[in-house]
Nucleic acid binder design. Structure first.
Length: 480
RNA sequence: GGCACCGUGGCCGAAUGGUUAGGCAAAGGUCUGCAAAACCUUUUAUAGCGGUUCGAUUCCGCUCAGUGCCUCCA
């Protein structure tokens, strides 16, 4: 009724395109999840928060969505400038003195815990790399048969030279093979050429992150897991592939190459590519390797910042723009969000009997339509937020009194829908369901009102001050 | 060196070939016992230079500044 076509910026051709799913009514979406070797930081969150909105909105449009987000629990090699590349999880396990799978368990739980706090919906399938070793070996074996991959010293590498004899490389990143060489980076001398990437790594350590393969004991490379699991659960061709912009190259480019070679079809794999831009801190990308990360754990547990505020802060910037973190911006978001939430509460508690049944010049249906236009235009959430602020002005100026009931109910249900269901903001006051506490506060207010009637400003101001110190703000009305 | 992106007030941020949304902050006012909240009012911006155009912040080119990726990263 209200929505026009959904338009998505497809980063493979850098154009905004009308979204047409492959199968009517069904959407398959794959998003690259975290490597679970540490607590997730704010930059990681941005991607997951954004795709949660995408997931929620696609469902809202009536699609049956299969949202797959993987957990990388093996194979993410760390280039430590030595001849041997180590797995991130194995490296971490040495630092913490735990088995690799204990590291995986610890940080997977932490990941889920914080995503739940941010009120993100769980994906439909959350596959792990270690759970798909057999499938990965199978694909690697076929790539070897096709002479796209080669064995070297017990490890397997993807040959870009052979790949480019049959297919075009670099369609996503626009990189040309001859330009890829970077003097700064050392590369394993197992590889025939610098641009080749690892599919299977022979193990030289004796630990439990090893598996038997036709080529001996080892573990899979990083890129192969995503090709394997995305097509396993979504099919050879699927609708949307998402992830952070930093994964565009090499990770996503490698995923495409592996899949194209495996299926022998250049039109296979994802139809729409969506990349979320980076979150910066003091103008520099927040990343674990730079060491300028702020974790959700710090913000929520140490600085007592509501996950809602963090989420709203993230969503205030369009997903394709760089988002710079600062405490001031976070405070900015906090005040803005408060305003929206308070307006909605005012709307929810508004008694319809007070309505004047007059027409006013705020057209609810045009407002709803504009909100849909904003989301449909490549998920322009900042513009949606602007319309939400417009709505708060209507509510706060008591223009709602002049709305008719029919308009009012539409307005109420849609603003609630946009804020709580599409953006997934949590209605925190509802969670504070301690009834005794509520009654206690009411009693104290009642006592204070008594002192106010007595014009005992010293005591009544003291009560206000004390309640204010624990975040309970009193809004007095006219006394007489 | 290669590929890509970006530059909008004090801060954050949309939009647009033709009066530049909004939020936060600031100032003044209304309201209030005083505050707070809310409401009303106000100030400040399209990096620079050139081109296309009747008209450019928007399109094109150059310069300057910044960011990301180049086989570690959401």
């Amino acid at each position: 009724m209200y929505h026009n076509d959904l338009i998505i910026y497809n980063s493979i051709n850098k154009k905004k395109e009308i979204f047409h799913p492959i199968h009517k009514k069904y959407v398959g979406i794959y998003v690259c999840g975290p490597t679970v070797y540490n607590h997730i930081h704010l930059g990681n969150c941005r991607t997951f928060v954004f795709f949660d909105v995408v997931y929620r909105y696609l469902k809202h449009l009536g699609y049956q969505v299969r949202y797959v987000r993987n957990i990388t629990d093996v194979g993410h090699l760390e280039n430590d400038r030595q001849s041997y590349q180590d797995d991130k999880i194995i490296k971490r396990s040495r630092i913490e003195g735990l088995e690799p799978m204990e590291i995986v368990q610890k940080y997977t739980i932490s990941f889920h815990n914080f995503l739940r706090k941010l009120n993100l919906l769980p994906p439909n399938i959350e596959p792990t790399a270690t759970g798909h070793i057999i499938e990965q070996i199978d694909i690697i074996q076929q790539l070897i048969c096709k002479k796209i991959a080669y064995i070297s010293n017990g490890s397997i590498y993807f040959s870009l030279k052979n790949y480019t004899k049959l297919y075009t490389y670099g369609i996503l990143s626009k990189n040309k093979i001859q330009n890829l060489f970077n003097k700064k980076t050392h590369f394993s001398n197992e590889k025939y050429s610098y641009q080749d990437f690892c599919l299977w790594k022979r193990s030289i350590h004796n630990h439990i992150m090893n598996w038997n393969s036709p080529w001996g004991i080892g573990f899979p490379g990083w890129h192969i897991e995503c090709s394997t699991m995305s097509t396993k659960y979504l099919g050879k061709i699927f609708d949307i592939h998402g992830g952070g912009l930093d994964l565009k190259f090499p990770h996503h480019e490698c995923e495409i190459a592996q899949s194209v070679a495996f299926y022998n079809d250049e039109n296979c794999f994802a139809r729409y590519w969506m990349h979320t831009n980076m979150l910066t801190f003091n103008g520099q990308k927040m990343s674990k390797s730079v060491g300028n990360t702020i974790t959700l754990k710090d913000l929520v547990e140490k600085k007592n910042i509501s996950p809602n505020v963090i989420k709203f802060f993230i969503l205030q910037t369009h997903y394709r723009n760089v988002l710079n973190f600062s405490e001031k911006n976070l405070l900015n978001a906090k005040n803005g969000l408060n305003r929206i939430i308070e307006s909605i509460q005012k709307l929810q508690s508004f008694d319809e009997k007070n309505m004047l049944e007059n027409n006013n010049n705020f057209n609810v249906f045009i407002w709803i339509k504009k909100c849909y236009y904003a989301i449909n235009d490549d998920f322009n959430i900042p513009l949606l937020i602007y319309y939400l602020f417009q709505a708060t002005r209507v509510i706060d100026s008591l223009s709602i009194e002049n709305m008719n009931k029919y308009y009012f109910n539409f307005f109420k249900s849609y603003i609630i829908y946009f804020v709580f269901h599409i953006l997934g903001i949590q209605n925190e006051t509802k969670n504070n369901s301690d009834k005794k506490l509520q009654i206690l506060i009411e009693k104290i207010q009642h006592i204070r009102q008594y002192f106010r009637m007595q014009k005992n400003w010293i005591i009544s101001d003291k009560i206000r001050e004390e309640l204010g110190s624990i975040g309970i703000l009193l809004k007095d009305k006219k006394l007489f």
